[in-house]
Design a protein around this nucleic acid. Structure first.
Lengths: 242, 242
DNA sequence: CGCCGACTTGAGCAATCTCAATCATGGTGG
DNA sequence: CCACCATGATTGAGATTGCTCAAGTCGGCG
């Protein structure tokens, strides 16, 4: 259906030489997925290196008990897995389209072989994995060190262009998903939004308006002056490298 | 002081050819650190690829507000950063020795050059980053989907050899750090331990004894039948790909 | 019109944090 | 040997956050 977009447009491939890109492009397939379609499931063999072309894909882990946890939400240009190196690797999480989405796939074997032949591709895969590590690291910090409300504020601010103070935008997915992203229930999210009204945050369904990003941020940095101790490691002064 | 241990002993380097390993070994330096010594700090330029030779090193993030969050605890054989590719990369977290620790360092520039020349080294770095992603992913799942007590149980079980039901061991670091690892305060950790006594978990300072790992696990799987909804994404049945 | 899905709101409860006090332990100096 | 201190661990009491269950709103849409 849709023409395969040039691989150059994916951040993953900056730094990869044209010849390799040509070869990869030859193997790439674009797939359209309906909302809710499962792209792959945790535990399955990894058969391809995948990317999001357009739309949103949620990555989730399912525990033995059956409940799903959202790990990450990927959108245009992002990879869907870490690059597979060996033939017997399995997915560590599942991927499901949120709304209609199109993905690009390159067969795992071919991809692995090209990485082995061409270190620039391997380094691209490494850089991508590092970006993921950075993302997850930030997520853990958030979860351990800040309240739901605080996480919501940061989440909202992340949608605002850095140079505008007043800002309005629309959430790219429903509040159920936002709640999962933040690791809270829908109810808590809703109440958090309600409390943020006092700080100049308007909400109308998926539309969000922030009166002053700077003010919002300032007010929450103030709150953070009395941090949750949960993840605090020391009491205030360095234990010193004697 | 201490002789550099053969790089082959580091899981990182399986799959890397001898010649490259030779060259790396020539650049490697072993450093001994006292308890509390800082190996590097978040934001600093990455000057070396580092590994733990012996001991424990905690990786932490410091927020603008000043509070530290534990991201990961690394011990014998683990890497300390993702492999640096470019000269201007900076550390995303700080590293500090917990107790005396020795680390091995290989200059970043050299390491990057060898990765560029030799895809097997780049693939080793990729595999390492993937392990980190898997670790962090599990961490996020834990934090979002299970209670402090549940996390503690899993943590304790992770110290037990798979084949023994009765099991006793000693925590490798103090309970303060265990608490940080689990993302709770010392107090809740202490109370969780107290509650676990009812499930056959003995504690005497750092020593832990578990009467029956199987029973403990079973009792907690049962509890998990009523999961926290916080990170539950759907109510029970798939929303279906229409 | 009546239902559905998404969202909100309310009331009560459970988990966890905070602050503060207590306790055990090990080392130190007298 | 003992008084004393520092550190880590435990315990208690009360406040808070966030969850659960349940009901109610709201905007479509057949």
């Amino acid at each position: 259906m849709s023409e395969s977009p040039p691989l150059r447009e994916f951040p993953f491939f900056v730094g990869v030489d044209d010849a390799t890109l040509q070869r990869l492009a030859g193997e790439a397939k674009v797939e359209a997925h309906a909302a809710g379609a499962v792209l792959f499931r945790q535990g399955e063999r990894i058969t391809a290196m995948g990317f999001v072309v357009r739309g949103f894909v949620k990555l989730t882990r399912t525990a033995a008990s059956g409940d799903e946890t959202l790990i990450s939400l990927r959108t245009d240009g992002a990879s869907l897995t870490e690059a597979p190196v060996r033939a017997d690797e399995t997915h560590h999480y599942s991927a499901e389209a949120v709304g209609p989405a199109t993905a690009l796939k390159i067969p795992a074997g071919r991809f692995a072989r090209l990485m082995a032949d061409n270190s620039s591709l391997a380094l691209a895969a490494l850089a991508d994995a590092k970006r993921t590590v950075a993302e997850l690291t930030g997520e853990i910090e958030s979860l351990k060190a800040s309240s739901a409300e605080h996480r919501l504020v940061r989440f909202l601010i992340s949608f605002c262009p850095p140079e505008e103070d007043h800002c309005r935008f629309r959430l790219p997915y429903d509040k159920r998903l936002v709640a999962a992203r933040l690791g809270v229930t829908q109810e808590t999210l809703s109440r958090s939004f309600a409390r943020l009204r006092a700080y100049g945050v308007r909400t109308e369904a998926r539309g969000i308006g922030i009166e002053s990003v700077a003010r919002l941020r300032a007010q929450f940095e103030e709150k953070a002056r009395e941090p949750r101790a949960s993840a605090r490691l020391v009491d205030s002064d360095a234990p010193g490298s004697s």
